[in-house]
Design a protein around this nucleic acid. Sequence first.
DNA 1: CGGACAACCTGGCGGC
DNA 2: TGCCGCCAGGTTGTCC
Length: 274
Amino acid sequence: MPELPEVETVVRGLRGPLIGRRITNMWHDWARTIHSPGAAEFAARIAGQSITAVDRRGKYILIKLEHDALVVHLKMSGRLYVADAESTNEADRWVHVRFDLDNGQQLRFSDMRKFGRVYLTNDLANLLGHLGPEPLSVDFTLAGFRAGMHGRKRAIKAQLLDQEFVAGVGNIYADEALFRAGIHPAAAAGTLSDEESARLRGTIRDALQSGIEHEGASINWYRKPDGQKGESQNHFTVYGRTGLPCLQCGTAISKIRVAQRGTHFCPLCQPART
DNA sequence: CGGACAACCTGGCGGC
DNA sequence: TGCCGCCAGGTTGTCC
């Protein structure tokens, strides 16, 4: 589910309720959700630590503690929210990890499909070292963007989904960025002209920024920490618009398979390479 | 290097 | 209504 804009929205919503709180206890009912360390050490180590900051790196949520960081990846269906200990809501039936806070509230990790993972580490660099630049930061340079694609034969969409190349882009915003740039998703990455590369780098940032401004996309399970839906899905230009008229030229939007992912594009505005 | 595919999981939807 | 297959915002590992 969540790509960079959704994760960013979650992080922004959690700062207020979490910063300054102390974690007193941990509960879980699905061992695989706890990536590392093992559940016993995890619980013993996190108890008593206060939360100092809540940040994001790519699609990872980083909850900074006094001596460690609690890292959460939502994968496809994860939700992270704070609630009063006695209160309940619709996502609770899929809660698999829960942290008690020192003010009577709880940080709950709900995950219907159970792909999500939590980590506790004092070595963030080791956990996140494989990630490429943050697309909205100054680290996302045009020179690096071009260099990463140079000589690559794989589809540009597969390239954009590679978290080592750029961190945080997923299936939705890859389609959105390629549509806005007028580039066919199956085009070999290394064949982009300098001008196309510059344009695409810009539309990646635009598409992600738009997603953040609309507080993420709620197609199915994604919700902001306050339980409300995001609005980004109402502003998609191509994702999920199969068969509908292209917003630029009116041609029916096509759906194909690229990098084993459903891929939406306009056959006229994003012509195939010959 | 990279493509194809299976795993990991559950639920919603369309078709019959 | 029931059953079946397919699809879904992600990542990792294996095989060729």
